[in-house]
Amino acid sequence: MAYRWGMVVDLDRCTGCEACVTACHAENNLPTVGADEAARGRAMHWIRVERYWEGEFPDVRVKFRPVLCQQCGNAPCEAVCPTYASHQNEDGLNAQVYNRCIGTRYCGNACMYNVRFFNFFHPQWEKPLQLQLNPDVSLRESGVMEKCTFCVQRIKAAKSAAKAEDRAIADGSLQPACAQACPAGALVFGDLNDPESRVARLSASPRGSKLLEDLGAEPKITYLHRQGWHESNA
């Protein structure tokens, strides 16, 4: 049976620590754009932890929400691409083929989650920072759109290892870098087609909802909202 990779983000666990952000940079060879470019809105974070303030001092709270590519089933970014650089792959991933990308950036506009990032210049790694690069992940050149892949290089490796041993990928044995790093275990990754997988069971949680669900993009990430404390517990 085909895999359908999905994720659950448990907002009750997320502490906003951003371990996922740097883990993603390290795993996926994201360029550091530098202060000047960051000031111009070119910082690249495939996963970001959105922070929203609620209320005013002193009755103030914060909502953290990790946002990464939602790997939509009906991804608005895909159809608009003239060269099929953005398309749905066989695992239900919203794939981005860098070599096909000509840089219209239309996908970035069509994406309602703003999780697509563009290489405005050739990425630079000042020597010897290039030694940190992950050889399993291709580098993107100037003019190319990129985005979260659910660490497709890890998925590929796990699939070929499983295939060699003629077994399915065991639930929990495969994680993208963000989920692996997350101290609080707020990010749960797995196969939605396997009803016994942790991600499939958590996706069915009554706490669950999708981000901008009403747009109908069928995102494969489920957000579990925070569990409220009731005064009756007192």
Binding site: G73, C77, A79, H87, Q88, E218
Partner: peptide, 12 residues
Amino acid sequence: TQQLWPLTTSGM
């Protein structure tokens, strides 16, 4: 040509 290399986009 759409059927030469069938690629799914946006669930279309």
